[in-house]
Design a protein around this nucleic acid. Structure first.
Lengths: 192, 192
DNA sequence: TACATTTCTTAACTTAAGTGAACGAGATGT
DNA sequence: ACATCTCGTTCACTTAAGTTAAGAAATGTA
């Protein structure tokens, strides 16, 4: 399972055995059961998560309603956005399936960065890549209708539609569960 | 005008006079007239822009329609998202007002990063901050209706509503110009 | 197994956004 | 000075999403 993490890192930098051992000794691997809430609204959220296996989601509670804004599956990295407000989060992070993830906090990152300057480079590359991906996603979301978004998701992350509850998918698409049901019926209608 | 850039940089790292001079000698400052298209669909887009004064926007052309997805004003940084596709862009970048910006490309950044390791740190911090901001924006967009988005914009970037054409603002909010007109009328109605 | 709870779907109705067309104000050009 | 164009708004109509409620299916629990 550790190899998955090293495979991921190898996309950005090359690690020596020493460095690999340093990472392993940090003890960041974590097995999480479905339903577990990793982060609650209002908690300090300086942790980053990296999904080795399974699925976690980010959601808000607005007017007593859950609004899911992101799903993270295999090889996805979740970075906190409290870099700005400097503290507590307005969102939740929960485990959708039994998962294996890594959990790291800012302190650990700073320490590792100062020990191995290489890590600074990886962090920059990763941030830039995530930012670019995020921008593309955002632009696609803005420029398309709910139906197009669903069809797009069907292309890009077909697994999500299978492994995630419909009502969570709906809010991820920016609509209500009932609308998603209708929308899917409409698409089936068209295909026939 | 250069001082604005250094003010911005000073949020992330402290520059020596030598380093400042190195930046100035790069000759990255650029004055751009309203209407100028900085980047066309299909062009290689490895340039980053930083707005010192004025306003630039990013847009797509989908089914012969302009879809504006972002505005960048004073102290905003626009980073390319072709880090992924490795090449040409699907979007346009145009100048909304007469502006003063800096233009830098990946090569220059790499060179500066290797000369001054400090820059690597700034780039990481900036990327992380932009990513965090972007995530918050995206989440807000997803979890709110067009009307809420407009009211939110009115709070956060009231200047935009004044300085930008309505039809561009509409697509930025994910709706048609007619809907924006109606929505505004509806809000006025409520206030009375 | 039986019961409760959650999740998904369907339906009827309401509300808001999309569409196509028209109008007027302001800017631009000849 | 006149024609043209762009832009924002308004209107009537269509389409799709929100809302409320009900019931079926799946899941979890005693």
């Amino acid at each position: 399972m550790q190899d998955l993490l090293f495979d991921f890192i190898s996309k950005y930098i090359t690690l020596t055995e020493d460095e690999k051992n340093a990472i392993i000794s940090l003890n960041i691997f974590c097995s999480v059961k479905k339903g577990i809430i990793l982060l609650r609204e209002g908690q300090k959220s300086q942790d980053s998560y990296f999904v080795l296996k399974g699925c976690i989601r980010k959601y808000y509670i607005i007017d007593d309603e859950e609004k899911t804004t992101a799903f993270y599956t295999e090889m996805d990295a979740l970075t906190p956005h409290c870099v700005l407000d400097g503290g507590s989060s307005e969102y939740f992070i929960a485990c959708v399936e039994d998962s294996i993830i890594t959990v790291t906090n800012t302190d650990m990152e700073m320490e590792t960065n100062s020990k191995f300057p290489k890590f600074e480079i990886m962090c920059r590359k990763l941030s830039e890549e995530l930012l670019a991906k995020q921008q593309i996603n955002f632009d696609e979301f803005k420029t398309s209708s709910p139906e197009q978004r669903y069809l797009n998701l069907l292309q890009k992350r077909p697994d999500l539609i299978q492994r995630v509850p419909q009502h969570q998918l709906a809010s991820y698409l920016g609509i209500k569960p009932q609308s998603l049901s209708r929308l899917r019926a409409r698409i089936l209608e068209k295909k026939i």
